[in-house]
Structure formats: structure tokens, C-alpha cells
Design a protein around this nucleic acid. Structure first.
Lengths: 200, 200
DNA sequence: GTCTATACCGTGATAGAC
DNA sequence: GTCTATCACGGTATAGAC
């Protein structure tokens, strides 16, 4: 942040508003009129900053995808035993999901009606595939239970992780900083890998 | 089925088509024009059967909700140790989700822009609350791990279960009947309660 | 029960003044 | 950079013939 919050919009600040409204009403359920009301400027002023509604969507899901793919290049995701890498990617996915919550939320709700949406779905599948490959490696190492299909387990694991966007809301710094972030990530990992039950 | 598939539509047969299109394009992304093309009749013919788009949505989510709430009245959900009841409800939720896949899919994607949608969201929360109460009882029995927040665990568990709608597709009876249904439900339950890992 | 034709409104997007 | 005014279009829904 080089300057304090200013009155005039940039594509970035406008994006913040747009993504919030998209998540509240759904992308298709949001009109340019809704956006203009939420931003406090007229419809035509929005067109001064961005080419249209779909560009806002493209910018938003790009940000989410960048965050997710970034994880796969981190040292913890490329070095070590496969199961450790899976745990790392899972934990980091939860963290990125929380850090970029509105953007990832939008990404996960994309349907595929427009070009930008189809592009987003394609890249999401690519990410899922990369994770599924990691899981296969962990299974080959004998570190995952053998009575479940790996592809299915991958989907369920990330279905669980992704479901965070439906209820997680960042608490506005109550005393201590962002401690709940790492805590929640740890909970998800422990639950997914060790299960809900007290003892087997 | 008292009669074979007929040419003329009823509200029910029309609903089948509408729900499929709603799930493909999203409710807001679906126009009456889309529906009429998919059904093979004109827009105005649709209005002969139903009052409008929102009635189709209401009928669809009602069917999903009836299926889910029905679970809570089954013997397995009201008798026995709490953890057994939680497992039962989890397993049955997976089964209902598969049996009523398009309807539950639509329910889980509802945003809340219209009256019917807000009503659906309210009833969904009611179901979630009933399940959360069961989980609390299981925790009080000492059958759930104590290092995770119960409310959070409930949300993650059902986030995992609900994520099925994003990828599960019924296979068109390849040889044996509907064996995969119970199998998948069992996998979800085992994964959720015992975890992914081979051994602790 | 289905059709064509149409009413009427909200949509995404643009023109041009300030 | 923002505005008002406006466009062409597609949206839900209805009228009335067959």
C-alpha cells in the first residue's frame, strides 16, 4: 500500500467490491446495476475501469488460481515423502483459501457459461490433477489406506477443504493476530488424515 | 410409473428437465428460453404447467429437503448410541444425495436472491443444526476426538459429504445393480471417521 | 396442451457532456 | 473519472388462436 484508501477507483479496488457482490448474489445473479450501487458509482463509470462484467470475473478467478498453483512450487510441495507433500499441499490450500477467500469462493462456484468460466474450470481441473498425482504417489508408498479408491479419496479430501468457503469467515483480529488461520488448517489436516473418531 | 413415457408434460416430468438445465447452467444462468429448448416445447407451454421459473426451483429443493429430513426420522437416526446415529445419518445422507442427485445439487447451490431460495437456505440450516446436535451428543459420550471444535468438525464432515454432488455421476447399470451406492457411502463414512492414513 | 405474437421491463454496454 | 441519457437485446410472463 503506497497510498491510503482513496476516493477514486482502480481496477483492483473495484474488483474487491465486485467479488463481494458476486459472492453474495452469484455471478449470474449480479447485474451491472447491482455493482454500480455497491461501488457507489454509475454503471458507465465501471466501464471506464474494466471492459465489462466478465473481465471482473476473469481477474478474480486468476487471482485465486495464482494462489493455488503457487503452492505446488513451494519447497514443501516438491521435496520429501509423498504423504508429507500431500499434507503440506492440503494445509497450504486451506491457508490460501482463507487468505484469498472471496476470490477462491468465486472460483469454486464457476459454472462454465462463458469463456472466462470455462478457462477457470480447465485450470481448476489441472490443479486437481496435480494433487491427485501426489496422492497416487503417497498410496504407492503405502502411506494411504488401501481400501479406498485414491481418486475418490482425493476428491473427498478437497471437497472437505473447499467446503470451507461456505462457512469460514475471518474474525476481525480479536486480541491476537491471525492465529486461527494456522489452527484451522491444522484441524482440517488432522481430521482428514486421522479421522473424527477417538480411537479405532 | 403407471404409464410409459408420454409425449405430454406434467409438472413432474417438466421438473426433471428443468433441474438438469438448472444444474448445467446455474439457476440464474437459465432462461425460460433455455428451458423451452431443452424440453422441446415453447416458453408459453411451460407456463401452462407451472407458474414460472421459481416454482420449478421450489419444487426441486422441496424434494431434496424432504429426502434429507426423512433421514432424521428413520430408526437408525433416533435409536442407539449418538456416534452410531451420526454414522447412520452420514451414510444415509450420502445415499439420499446419490438417489436425489440433481435435486440435492440444486439445493446446495442456492444463493438466496428470491423468496424460494431463502426458504430453502433456512431449512438447510435447520437440517445442519439437527446434525450438529447429534455430533455434540457423540462428543459428550467421549466418542469424538477432543482436539477439534465440534461445530467445525460437523461442517467439515458435511462439507465432504456434500462435495459429492460436484463429481459423483451414477453409472448406467454396468452388469450388477446399484452396488456402488452403498459402497461409496461406506467409503465416505470410513474416511471421515477413521481418516486417510494407513496407521497412526 | 401447444403454439405465435407480443407486452413490458431489466440487462450489458455506449455516447458524449462536464 | 464520473455523470445522464440512451441503445439494442433478452428476460419473464401473458393473450388468444388452434
Amino acid at each position: 500500500m503506497t497510498a491510503a484508501k482513496r476516493d477514486t477507483y482502480t481496477p483492483e479496488t473495484l474488483l474487491t467490491v465486485a467479488v463481494r457482490v458476486f459472492n453474495e448474489r452469484g455471478y449470474d445473479g449480479t447485474s451491472m446495476e447491482h455493482l454500480s450501487k455497491a461501488a457507489g458509482i454509475s454503471k458507465s463509470s465501471i466501464y471506464h475501469h474494466v471492459a465489462g462484467k466478465e473481465e471482473l470475473l476473469r481477474r478474480a478467478v486468476s487471482r485465486a488460481l495464482d494462489g493455488l498453483f503457487g503452492i505446488l512450487d513451494e519447497p514443501g510441495a516438491v521435496r520429501g515423502r509423498a504423504i508429507e507433500r500431500v499434507e503440506y499441499v492440503t494445509r497450504r490450500t486451506v491457508e490460501v483459501l482463507m487468505a484469498e477467500l472471496p476470490y477462491v469462493t468465486l472460483l469454486l462456484r464457476v459454472r462454465g457459461n462463458t469463456k472466462a468460466e470455462r478457462w477457470a474450470l480447465e485450470r481448476r481441473r489441472e490443479f486437481d490433477q496435480r494433487v491427485a498425482d501426489l496422492m497416487k504417489a503417497a498410496a504407492a508408498d503405502g502411506d494411504l489406506r488401501t481400501d479406498v479408491d485414491i481418486r475418490m479419496a482425493t476428491r473427498l479430501l478437497f471437497g472437505m477443504v473447499n467446503s470451507l468457503v461456505e462457512w469460514y469467515r475471518p474474525q476481525a483480529a480479536e486480541g491476537h493476530g491471525g492465529v486461527d488461520g494456522e489452527q484451522l488448517a491444522e484441524t482440517v489436516v488432522r481430521l482428514a488424515f486421522d479421522g473424527l473418531r477417538t480411537s479405532r
